[in-house]
Write a protein that binds this DNA or RNA. Structure first.
Lengths: 242, 242
DNA sequence: AAGTGGTCTAGACCACTGC
DNA sequence: CAGTGGTCTAGACCACTTC
C-alpha cells in the first residue's frame, strides 16, 4: 500500500488495520460475507463513510470483493475469476483453455541458503518440494518446482495434490487456511537442461522462460517460493503495464 | 419494468469523461496543475465530493497526480518517478543504475500486415522504425525495434533521438504532444539470431527475452509497437502480481 | 418490502504548501 | 495567512439482490 507518515494515520487506515486483523485471525474466512457497512460502522464507532473508505482500499488490494445488493466478501482462490490472477500465460491463438495441473513429485527436505532466504526461515528448517507439470490442451507447457515451509504445510503429500480438483492456491486456502495475496515474479530467459527438455518434449538448449515467484500471505509473510520453466512456442506471458 | 440499459453511468464517471476530454484536447498539459476541486465543482455544477471521486479514479489510472497543499497535476513522463513505470528490468545484484539509450537507426517504411494491425492503421500507411540499444553500466542489455505511425511522428529523425536527454516517452510527450498511458507486453523466450548476438556481444542462439509491447495513448489508441530483446544474464524482468 | 452496496450532497475540520 | 488536497460526518436517495 501507500506509505504512511510515521506521525499520522487517518481513521480509515486504523479501521483497515482492525479489519486486517480480523482477516488474519480468521474471524472472516475466504468466500464468506463480512458484516455490512452499517454493522461495521457501529462496531468501530465511526461513520459508514469511513468504513467504506477502509473497504475501498482493501477491495483495491484484492483482499475483499464487493457485490452490490449482496454484501462484501473475503476474496478466495476458489473463485474461478481468481484463476488467472497469478498465471499470466496465454495461448498465442487466443483460444482460452484451462490448464491441467499434473503433480509429479512431493518430498521433504531441509532449507538451503537460497530457500531459507526466500521463505524467511532458517537454513536447515524443514521444507516441502513439489514438482508439477502444467498442461494446456494435453500438451506440457510449464514445469514448476515449488518450495514450501514444512511447518505450515504439514500433511501435504503427492496423494493430496493428486486428489485435488482446482488450483493449487485453492488447495492451500481450503486445506491449510493460507491465503495468497501478493506475489513477485522475476523473469529470465534460459536454456532447457536435459531433464526439463525431456518433460516438455523439446530439444535440449531450447530457450525457455524462467519465472521465479515469491508469494506472500497476510502480513507480507512469504510462504511459497517457486521456479517455473515455461515453453513459449504456443503461449506467451502477458503483462499489463499501467 | 423496463430493461436496465447497460449504459448507466454515475455522475462522477460523466465528470471523469469531461475531464478526459480536457486532457485529450490539450487544455491541461503534462506537468501542469489542473484547476482546484472547488473550481471544477463550480464548472461542472456538482459537489466537490463528486469531482473528488472522478479525480480519484484518474489518479488511480496514473493520469493525474495529487499533491496535498499544492494541487492536482497532469502526469508526465518528464517526472523522474515515471522512468521505471514501463521498464521492468532490474539488475540481479540490486544495484540501481540508470540505463543509457543509444539510438542506432531511424528510417521510414510502409506498414505491413502485422504493424498495421498492431498500430490500428492501414497496410501501406507510412511508419517510422527506430532501432536503439539500452545500456546498463556501459553494457548493452536490450535491443529495441520500435514501430511508430508516420503521421503522428513527422519530423522524428535519428538526430532528434540522439539529441534528446531523457526517456523516449519523455521525448514523445514534449516534442509530439503524445502521452503514453498504458501498455501491454507479451513475453517469450527466443534464441538470439546472428545480428542480435553481435550487438549484445553474446553467442548466437543465446536465450533472450522477447518483449513485445503495444503502447496506448488517450482513448486507448495504439501509437507504438515495439519488440525488445533482453539479455537476462545480469538483469531480470520484475513483475508484481497483486 | 427489506437489506445490501453505490452515489451525491453539504459542511466542518485537518494537514500540507507557499507567500 | 490563504489556498490546496485529505478526512470525517450525516442524511437522502439510487441500484441491485433476495424474500
Amino acid at each position: 500500500m501507500s506509505q504512511d507518515s510515521p506521525t499520522y494515520s487517518p481513521l480509515y487506515r486504523q479501521i483497515k488495520g482492525l479489519m486486517l486483523q480480523a482477516l488474519e485471525a480468521g474471524e472472516w474466512r475466504p468466500g464468506q460475507v463480512i458484516p455490512s457497512e452499517q454493522e461495521l460502522a457501529a462496531r468501530f464507532n465511526v461513520s459508514q463513510g469511513t468504513v467504506r473508505k477502509a473497504i475501498d482500499e482493501m477491495a483495491a488490494d484484492n483482499l475483499l470483493v464487493r457485490k452490490q445488493g449482496k454484501g462484501t466478501f473475503v476474496a478466495s482462490h476458489n473463485d474461478p475469476r481468481a484463476l488467472f490472477r497469478f498465471l499470466r500465460l496465454v495461448p498465442l491463438d487466443g483460444e482460452i483453455s484451462h490448464p491441467e495441473s499434473v503433480p509429479l513429485e512431493c518430498w521433504r527436505a531441509r532449507a538451503g541458503q537460497e530457500a531459507s532466504r526466500m521463505l524467511g526461515i532458517k537454513p536447515g528448517d524443514p521444507i516441502i518440494i513439489v514438482r508439477r507439470l502444467l498442461k494446456f490442451a494435453q500438451k506440457p507447457v510449464v514445469i514448476d518446482e515449488i518450495y514450501l515451509p514444512g511447518e505450515i504445510f504439514q500433511g501435504l503429500t503427492l496423494e493430496v495434490l493428486q486428489g485435488w480438483q482446482g488450483s493449487i492456491y485453492s488447495l492451500f486456502e481450503t486445506r491449510f487456511g493460507l491465503r495468497m495475496i501478493r506475489a513477485q515474479e522475476s523473469i529470465r530467459a534460459v536454456a532447457a537442461d536435459r531433464g526439463t527438455a525431456e518433460v516438455l518434449r523439446v530439444p535440449e538448449g531450447k530457450p525457455l522462460l524462467s519465472v521465479e515467484r515469491v508469494t506472500y500471505t497476510y502480513g507480507d509473510k512469504p510462504v511459497e517460493w517457486r521456479r517455473g520453466l515455461y515453453l513459449t512456442d504456443e503461449h506467451f506471458y502477458l503483462n499489463e503495464l499501467s
